[in-house]
């Protein structure tokens, strides 16, 4: 068979190879060790030197042509094989509705963390204390003696330890302020978040156990103006710079002067957020802090209430039902 015929035969076979495997077989059949083109090399020896050179050249060219054609064919076949595979892997991604389940922090925890983070940014540390307290920490050290009318207003839940009405579920986180002042010398810049308790029957707007955060600063020359500025600074960081604050005179046994603090609402009104004031000098003295040298302010408000306000919850009991349909919304 002459070389041209063989070459034609080879290129036709390469072009006709339907897939990569067949192409490999075709290539071996012509260019392999025992391939029909390779076999032509053995015939060269019988030719005259000049003819051998020319025939050798022609054979090399033919083999290169076949190899080249095969490479091109391989590229084409590989591309179409991949295209076929990809086509077979087509997915409708809109069919995927699962999510990788990550848990949700409780709404109250989220609010508490945000509050802590804002106050940490303002130079405060976070203090914590027990939820069951003695009358000293919950009342007396806070300038609320046993006969004081304010005691009744706390609606305290007492526990059966010690003398009657001497041990109770704390009705505010203020005991943490006392414990901090007893154990730490001023300057003091703390916030005390935590669970507090009142004899409120659970309904859409009340829970007997709820969460508060209080702040306490004791330093030199601390004033009502410092309190107003700190509250404004916090409100701007937490609610946004457009929200205004104001203080209104009020009364708490543990602060004097005392105030309620309000934040402005988008409709132009005011919303009462919490109570605050300059720390009553008796409270400082009760904790061994000289009220001549040191002055302080304190403030407090409800964490749950913030969450209720922010999401306009219509039933605060959802905060303790632990229904996942509620928990996973936040």
């Amino acid at each position: 068979m002459d070389l041209d015929t063989l070459l034609q035969e080879a290129t036709d076979a390469v072009a006709a190879a339907p897939d990569l495997e067949s192409l490999a077989v075709v290539e071996r059949g012509f260019l392999g060790k025992k391939g029909s083109l390779t076999a032509q090399k053995k015939l060269l020896g019988s030719l005259e030197p000049d003819a051998r050179k020319a025939a050798g050249q022609a054979l090399n060219d033919a083999m290169a042509t076949v190899a080249q054609t095969a490479t091109e064919r391989r590229t084409t076949l590989a591309a179409s094989a991949e295209a076929e595979q990809l086509a077979g892997e087509r997915l409708d991604l809109t069919e995927t509705m699962d999510e990788l389940q990550r848990g949700r922090a409780h709404l109250v925890t989220q609010a508490r963390d945000r509050l802590e983070d804002v106050f940490v940014g303002m130079g405060f540390t976070v203090a914590e204390g027990p939820e069951v307290e003695s009358a000293w920490y919950n009342f007396e050290a806070l300038n609320i003696p046993e006969w004081h009318p304010a005691r009744g207003s706390f609606d305290t839940i007492f526990v059966e330890l010690g003398e009657p009405e001497q041990v109770m579920l704390r009705s505010h986180t203020s005991p943490v302020q006392i414990r901090t002042m007893e154990n730490q010398k001023p300057p003091i810049y703390i916030v005390a978040p935590g669970r507090t308790f009142r004899t409120d029957t659970a309904d859409a707007t009340h829970l007997p156990a709820f969460n508060q955060i209080e702040g306490l600063v004791v330093d030199r020359n601390i004033s009502l103006g410092d309190l107003a500025g700190t509250i404004e600074s916090f409100v701007h960081a937490f609610f946004g710079g457009e929200v205004e604050t104001r203080l209104r005179p009020s009364y708490f046994p543990f602060t004097e002067p005392s105030a309620e603090f309000d934040i402005s609402t988008p409709d132009g009104g005011w919303l009462e957020l919490g109570g605050c004031g300059v720390v009553n000098p008796n409270v400082l003295a009760n904790c061994g802090i000289d009220p001549e040298e040191w002055q302080g302010f304190a403030f407090g408000f409800g964490i749950d209430r913030l969450a209720v306000m922010r999401y306009q919850l219509d039933d605060i009991r959802e905060l303790v039902n632990n229904d996942v349909r509620f928990l996973r919304q936040f």
Binding site: S223, D226, E232, S233, L247
Partner: peptide
């Protein structure tokens, strides 16, 4: 009352 912010 002027608002001021103390810093520890």
């Amino acid at each position: 009352i002027p608002k001021t912010v103390p810093r520890g």
